[in-house]
Design a protein around this nucleic acid. Structure first.
Lengths: 243, 243
DNA sequence: CGTCCGTTTGAGGATCATCAATGTCCGTGG
DNA sequence: CCACGGACATTGATGATCCTCAAACGGACG
């Protein structure tokens, strides 16, 4: 698997429940989750793995072999630049699918941030299964479509000139992701400042200054560095939208 | 159709040939093009339209009704910002599918740059057809995956700090798109400077100065503003990769 | 021939990256 | 229990880059 991995300690209860693909729509509103049968079937094909923090799942350039589904934990997908800098292309949350490849090679490097539970499926097995089950395939299509929208949003984010605006958009993105989980008014920020910087395309220092500004202006309060409270919703939204 | 359109003058020869979805891979190398039967079937479901330049196909926020396939011409997909600025999210080349929506509404505005031939399919009809034909659906899945990769690349592009580097990456993207068409050494640049600026996230002036620099350094020669010649391939590639 | 649109060129100002130093947290070892 | 070390984060000063404003230029088209 191209990387050190946590061996052995899988949860012995087979949790086929956790393979849901997230709600999206291609217009039509349908039952967005997988059927019980589909989950069971996917669970049959997939192998669960429990992965410690800061573990590389695969590297850019590695031969494509598995597609991964994140059911628990946080993973980053990033590219190493010549300069040594890293650009995080996506954060993979629970219910996210990853393993993007081109010409049979992974495009990015994937690394866990927190401990994570991943299900891996051989890519050709998955492809075959998708061909067999058009309904399942449709969920994947929706999922990739959602990822496409997110990528476009990130392009808009990175394209902004102002640091605080970028940070605001970033927090908004996090809020969207955790909205379903019912956190209201406060936003979990599971990643480090450095990782935020690598995602929004700023230097670490700029991120630091931007968070400080947001706090000073009374728009957002940070506590322990990994939780953000939205104090002034109106100005926060204005910042996010203001471009 | 939410927009003025060129009425009547469809080519009377039914060109089912032109509905190909472009080559991509999810790892497996397959016959990348649609089968003749699939093309015919798609052509049955789709309505061709010949659209003049600078025509709005749909606006962001419009209710989703059609999915479009571009078979000829150039379309831009962009978002209007509060400031009045525009950020181009994607250029749609022949064989591209577009009509990205969220919650039943188009996410971006689509506008033709050149005259174009578009096929439109009612989104729910397409969805139904995809459910029926898992193979066809797989091609769409690959297509969206390709778009995702491109979007990620654009994020990297926009994230760069140097204007010339961004322009170089942009030209490289164009070259990739026209590579199949056999132009060797020279790159068609069908869009305006302003549109390039809106895509790479620079001001019009910065784009102008960057092109000038590329020309002065003998890396690329521009003629008539819509064609670029790669003079120094080595330094060009270095610029593209140098981050 | 004049207007309009897109582009080029120039000068000044704002913003962020970079470099450097200090500060904080946490785990390790004495 | 405390001191040390390392990773990460903050804060400050300087410089480079690009945006903005402004003016001139060019071709297309009436």
């Amino acid at each position: 698997l191209h990387a050190k991995r946590a061996d052995g300690n899988y949860p012995s209860t087979a949790p086929d429940i956790s393979l849901d693909i997230v709600p999206v729509d291609m217009g039509k509103s349908r039952t967005h989750l997988l059927t019980a049968a589909q989950r069971r079937h996917l669970a049959d094909l997939a192998t669960p793995m429990r992965v410690p923090p800061r573990t590389i799942v695969y590297r850019q350039g590695d031969a494509l072999s598995w597609i991964f589904i994140n059911t628990d934990g946080l993973v980053k997908s990033f590219r190493e630049l010549r300069s040594g800098a890293r650009r995080i292309v996506a954060f993979l949350f629970p219910r996210d699918v990853f393993g993007l490849a081109e010409n049979g090679r992974y495009v990015n490097t994937a690394k866990t941030i927190t401990a994570a539970t991943l299900y891996r499926i051989q890519h050709d097995v998955l492809a075959a299964e998708l061909q067999r089950d058009a309904d399942l395939e449709f969920r994947f299509l929706c999922k990739v479509t959602q990822k496409l929208r997110e990528a476009q949003r990130q392009t808009l984010l990175v394209g902004r000139r102002d640091a605080v605006g970028r940070l605001a958009m970033f927090l908004k993105m996090l809020e969207r992701h955790f909205a379903a989980t019912g956190h209201n008014g406060w936003i979990p920020v599971p990643m480090s400042r450095t990782e935020i910087a690598d995602y929004v395309g700023l230097s670490l220092e700029a991120v630091s200054r931007a968070t400080r500004k947001l706090a000073l202006q009374g728009i957002i309060a940070f506590e322990d560095g990994h939780t953000a409270h939205v104090l002034d919703r109106a100005r926060f939204n204005a910042l996010v939208a203001a471009m």
